[in-house]
């Protein structure tokens, strides 16, 4: 891990963590286990695999990406509901500016026999400059019928009404954008990362 790609494991109950290299993570969550981890990516690729191995295993994966210049970032997150009665949540949010590009791929897989699972995944990306690109491929792979699964993904600019509202209160556009982007990531990322996020915003927005 580098300082510009921090992570924070909030909860780790009955979880085996493997970290074969800087960019890859494997989490095996056992019976009644619970995992909650946050990632912030600004330069490095990220490859996360979570296996919910036993009954009542749970995980929450939060990931934010902030990317600039002509950087390219790949973020792959896969959650495998290997056992019945398991629950997962993924929240991914990010910003691409300059000529950067991000490719996010998220998979929720529920094999046959993993009944009564609940898998959710949400992605929201903001393209901040004319030459930046975001690609998102959120996948659901469902082979069991008694499950609740959903994913949502949205890519688009900041809300124009919110931006306008802030400007009418006297904020210049870039300040208004910064505030909105901060709150966009603020509800996802922990306090510990706020300096990095703030620093990035100051340089790039």
């Amino acid at each position: 891990m580098t300082i510009s790609n921090p992570f924070l494991i909030h909860t780790q109950e009955n979880v085996i963590v493997k970290n074969p290299d800087d960019k890859s993570w494997v989490f095996e969550v056992g019976e009644n286990g619970n995992l909650w981890v946050d990632f912030l990516q600004t330069t490095d690729d990220l490859n996360v695999f979570v296996s919910l191995q036993a009954e009542e295993a749970k995980c929450k994966i939060n990931c934010a990406y902030l990317i600039n210049k002509n950087n390219m970032l790949n973020i792959d997150i896969k959650v495998l509901h290997k056992y019945k009665n398991t629950t997962s949540e993924q929240h991914i949010k990010g910003i691409a500016t300059d000529e950067s590009s991000v490719s996010f791929k998220g998979i929720v897989e529920i094999p046959k026999d993993s009944q009564k699972c609940d898998g959710r995944q949400h992605h929201r990306g903001v393209v901040l400059s004319p030459k930046a690109k975001i690609e998102a491929v959120p996948q659901l792979e469902i082979w069991a019928d008694d499950v609740v699964c959903s994913h949502g993904s949205a890519i688009g600019p900041l809300d124009a009404n919110q931006l306008f509202y802030l400007q009418t209160r006297g904020l210049p556009e870039h300040e208004a954008k910064k505030i909105l982007l901060n709150s966009f990531l603020g509800d996802l990322m922990p306090e510990e990362f706020s300096d990095i996020i703030q620093g990035w915003m100051d340089k790039n927005v």
Binding site: V127, L128, S129, I134, P138, H151, I155, G156
Partner: peptide, 14 residues
């Protein structure tokens, strides 16, 4: 979903 325009919007739900 591929977005290469900063004013375009893509929304997907499943």
């Amino acid at each position: 979903m591929q977005c290469a325009n900063e004013t375009a919007t893509i929304e997907h739900e499943a």
